[in-house]
Design a protein around this nucleic acid. Structure first.
Length: 504
RNA sequence: GAUUCCGUAGCUCAGCUGGUAGAGCAUUACACUUUUAAUGUAAGGGCCCUGGGUUCGAAUCCCAGCGGGAUCACCA
């Protein structure tokens, strides 16, 4: 990583030497005792002034306005910013004014970590500030941070907008763009809320293998790796479904896992090669129960993040208040295309696709053609949370046949803002049916469908021991985070989105 | 993978039909004891993404490459 140092970087390195010459260690080892945060001061000082007479706070030095013998500076800690007031003669009571004139005014840079002691007061302009009685350099910054300034109207100037910079140097993005941090805090709150719901249901959080000999549970191209000692290929998991169901076979009533999945496919603003899906499985339940559970959980998430069920996403206001609408897949297609696909043959479906300009090809079977029509003509209409139910059996190889509707399975997808957020079903637990479904997948694979599933014989063996009737669901956590934080790009809800390696 | 746009100072961006670079903020120096996008004065800072080509002359035009964005395809 050798490169030409910029003038500003050279200057900062020189300051390092000057500090050491003054006997100041720029990277001290000792603990700095912090007893307050910026947020705490701003929220509580007005009503409890006596508690803020001897405070100690640390953070990044993010800006300074030098006024001769007094200065104002900005300190940014993990909770926000607070203004510092520094007076020369108070910091340097004696003849030697170098601590103020040299160290504070000249050797400190934007981005440096400092620790400060003093008391809180309100300036003449009315800003709650810290009157500094002493300060200590805690860590010197050698690389200039981009300076974002916000004017009186709240408009940001020179904000760092280059996506490449923001994603590759997320650490700098986080320091400089305060909204970014907020997105990730919300993401974690969302996950905490979901975890709480699941724990309250009595489900057990589990871990299942990421390295798998047979990638299963979804239709996707996997990453391949190699185990040296065994000298066999392994696949990074594309889904954890089949492992969680093995645990249901093993006698757990309910299990869940936030599963990091890996798919060797294209990447764009809604796809990252690694992404997170929550899957959970509950014994003795069905997909009707799962719909209710799912909507309750999402309503709680919206409330946890926004204190209301209504969430703003782009131009849309999306209301997660239960109950969500429920529409069967066939009714949805009928509503938006006027076509009743329920009794159509594969050929009739292909003709229907052609007449509506829906792309299709020879490798697509009946199920996939119906899915294609829905995806092209209907999906985008479902802005408010809507369960689309009862899918054709051909496109659902792990799903139990519908209790009363022949040719269909007990499955739903949750659509929000025109996109699929969750996919769930009454799990197929008939081992003979399951084996036949896998064999159908093999036929699709031979026909050219490169997303068809492999046969997992160990999973079939597990089913043969007997799995209780079970409801299961997968929820795209990144996609949900995008909705809940009003971001249109998956890269904005992942700390470190995958990028092409930087060239040296 | 296809199409399209972009790459100029630490950051945000100008730079016309080709004449070898500009602004604001940031940096450096000086002034200023309650300011807040502080202000004033002055200074420094650029392999104009890389490599070829056209030309007397290229940041600018052409070709190729690298990196990124957007749209599409695949997928969640």
């Amino acid at each position: 990583m050798s490169h030409q140092l910029s003038e500003q970087e050279i200057v900062r390195r020189q300051k390092l030497d000057q500090l050491r010459a003054l006997g100041i260690e720029p990277y001290p080892a000792a603990e700095f005792n912090v007893n307050v945060t910026a947020k705490d001061i701003k929220e509580n000082y007005e009503r409890d002034k006596t508690s803020y007479k001897a405070i100690s706070i640390a953070g990044r030095f993010m800006g300074v306005r030098i006024m001769g013998k007094a200065s104002f500076a900005e300190l940014q800690d993990a909770t926000g910013r607070i203004q510092l007031y520094v007076n020369r003669d108070e910091i340097c009571p004696g003849e030697d004014k170098s601590l103020y004139n040299d160290v504070f005014k000249k050797l400190l840079d934007i981005g440096d970590y400092i620790g400060v002691e003093g008391y809180v007061f309100t300036t003449q302009v009315g800003e709650i500030s810290i009157h500094v009685t002493s300060f200590k350099l805690l860590s010197k910054s050698l690389k200039p941070l981009p300076i974002v300034k916000v004017d009186a109207e709240g408009a940001a100037h020179d904000s760092v907008s280059d996506p490449e910079f923001r994603y590759r140097q997320r650490y700098a993005d986080l320091v400089v763009n305060p909204g970014v941090k907020e997105t990730f805090v919300k993401r974690t709150k969302m996950i905490n809320s979901i975890r709480e719901s699941l724990n309250n249901l009595g489900l057990l959080e589990v871990d299942t293998p990421v390295l798998q000999a047979i990638p299963g549970g979804a239709a996707a191209r996997p990453f391949v790796t190699h185990h040296n000692a065994l000298d066999v290929p392994f696949y990074l998991r594309i889904a954890n479904e089949l492992y969680l169901k093995r645990l249901i076979v093993g006698g757990f009533d309910g299990v869940y896992e936030f599963s990091r999945n890996f798919r060797n496919e294209g990447m764009d603003r809604t796809h990252n090669p690694e992404f997170t899906v929550l899957e959970f499985y509950v014994a003795y339940k069905d997909y009707e129960w799962m719909m209710t559970t799912c909507e309750n959980m999402l309503e709680k998430v919206a409330l946890a993040l926004h204190d209301t069920t209504e969430v703003t996403v782009g131009e849309q206001k999306i209301n997660f208040q239960t109950p969500f609408k429920r529409v069967t897949l066939y009714d949805a297609i009928k509503e938006h295309t006027g076509i009743d696909v329920s009794n159509m043959s594969e050929e009739e479906l292909r003709d229907a696709c052609r007449s509506m300009n829906v792309p299709c090809d020879k490798t697509m079977g009946r199920g996939k053609l119906i899915d294609q029509i829905f995806g092209e003509k209907c999906e985008g209409h479902y802005i408010q949370p809507t369960f689309i139910t009862d899918y054709p059996v051909e496109m659902s190889p792990l799903t139990k046949k519908h209790r009363s509707k022949p040719g269909l399975v007990e499955r739903f997808e949750l659509m929000v803002n025109g996109k699929e957020i969750a996919n769930a079903y009454s799990e197929l637990n008939d081992p003979i049916d399951q084996r036949e479904r896998f064999e159908e997948q093999v036929k699709l694979m031979e026909r050219g469908d490169d997303e068809a599933m492999y046969i997992d014989h160990d999973f079939l063996r597990a089913l043969e021991y007997g799995m209780p009737p079970t409801a299961g669901i997968g929820i795209g956590i990144d996609r949900l985070a995008m909705l809940m934080t009003n971001n249109v790009s998956i890269q904005d809800v992942l700390f470190f989105p995958q990028m092409r390696p930087e060239k040296q």
